[in-house]
Design a binder for these strands. Sequence first.
DNA 1: CGAGCCGTTGAGGGGATTCAAGCTCAGTGG
DNA 2: CCACTGAGCTTGAATCCCCTCAACGGCTCG
Lengths: 242, 242
Amino acid sequence: MTVIPLYRQEANPQAEVCRSCSVRQFALFGALSDEALDTIHTRIATVEFEPGAPVFDAGQRGAALYTVRSGVVRFERVNERGDWRITRLAGKGDLLGAEALVQHRHADAAVACTPVVACRIPRELVDELSAQQPAIVRELMRRWQAALDDAEDWLAELATGSARRRVLRLLLKLAGLAPPGEPIWLPKREEMGAMLGLTLETASRMVSQLKREGVIQRHEVGHAWIDLPVLQEAAAREDRLE
Amino acid sequence: MTVIPLYRQEANPQAEVCRSCSVRQFALFGALSDEALDTIHTRIATVEFEPGAPVFDAGQRGAALYTVRSGVVRFERVNERGDWRITRLAGKGDLLGAEALVQHRHADAAVACTPVVACRIPRELVDELSAQQPAIVRELMRRWQAALDDAEDWLAELATGSARRRVLRLLLKLAGLAPPGEPIWLPKREEMGAMLGLTLETASRMVSQLKREGVIQRHEVGHAWIDLPVLQEAAAREDRLE
DNA sequence: CGAGCCGTTGAGGGGATTCAAGCTCAGTGG
DNA sequence: CCACTGAGCTTGAATCCCCTCAACGGCTCG
């Protein structure tokens, strides 16, 4: 993990970094005015993570929250039997680690899937702002509800039906996480298995089949081109027949 | 649904109903003082639901939140393919419908599984109290995080592994929802299927097998006696081998 | 250029589904 | 009072999809 405190970026005035942030309008502090932002940016740091690096571990005491500026982060946990399961994904604009506000330990781990750039926000800062700015509280609640909805949607769409259906639905979700016009991030087959409750071999077979059908095209390692209408049509067809 | 406004319960003074509430210490307003409670109880109503009756429907505008006083409620949704999936359960002390505070429509439906008694709290009341009492906001956040953790746990424990493992884990969860010393609620096999991502026939086979093994004993329709240590041991053994 | 990770593919077996039939049991009405 | 009814549960048999085990190939990196 690389940390770049914003107040050290002298060539790039601090206030400007936060003000012109590409995810500002989607982020937790999107509701804050320029003036309010000016008073807090010195306490926010830019952090970067390599693929596989943890943003935080399960069981760890949460001291900060993170806003994703770019990249994809997975939430994972190991069940009582020892199975590794990925339960959710986060992308640009999403908030990680809000549980630090209400309980000490993270119930699951957050791990970078691609190179990730994020803003690290100390827990105390959010606490202080919540007390002053009701909009922040409302935004926090909105995000909690969105995460809950996401988790339930994940269960209903990615843990239900045939292996082919699940892989197609996952690809649709990944397409929503990728910047428009760029190739989508294609997880390792083992990761796909942990997301979908399948073995890596089954995931591989489904991906290979979809490549042969032309629904996805290989781009680089871990990335693929998709034609969204074709993918949507394939997913809809899969759901239609029986 | 039966509604009994508290202010009509003349034989039972309103303030007393809230003050002596059996779930008060677990409930959203558990943080409020007797004095604070006295100012709001007239706006809270007791509501009752028969098994199968919706507390609210998916897509409905949420005008109220509910605190469960007794019984079990399921959250359910239908995925894009049309599969019915149950994503979570709520029991005594749990809060339903908090999404009414931050968005208009419910993403999933909440349906009574057993006879349910709940407190209906108007959305505006929670809004007002949140503005005055920071403890309420904190409690709301804590509950949101708990629900999110619950949903991820559900995915990791109930949507992973063999059918036998899933049924055992479900029974453990149901044991936690039942009042101590009473028989647990045993869902219909079709409901079990919707919870576990299995067919009702497979759920039935697993339940029958566990009955033959003596892990559970039939009590009445829809209820069963369990011996918790025996169940825990069976679940642990299942997870241990392979 | 070899080592290791990752992905692919095959063959075989097994567990869940599908389809179907019969059962239990509570509620209903003659 | 009890046959009737229907919803829910159980069980069987056949099928199929996914898992397991295994081998191999490609790619990256030291």
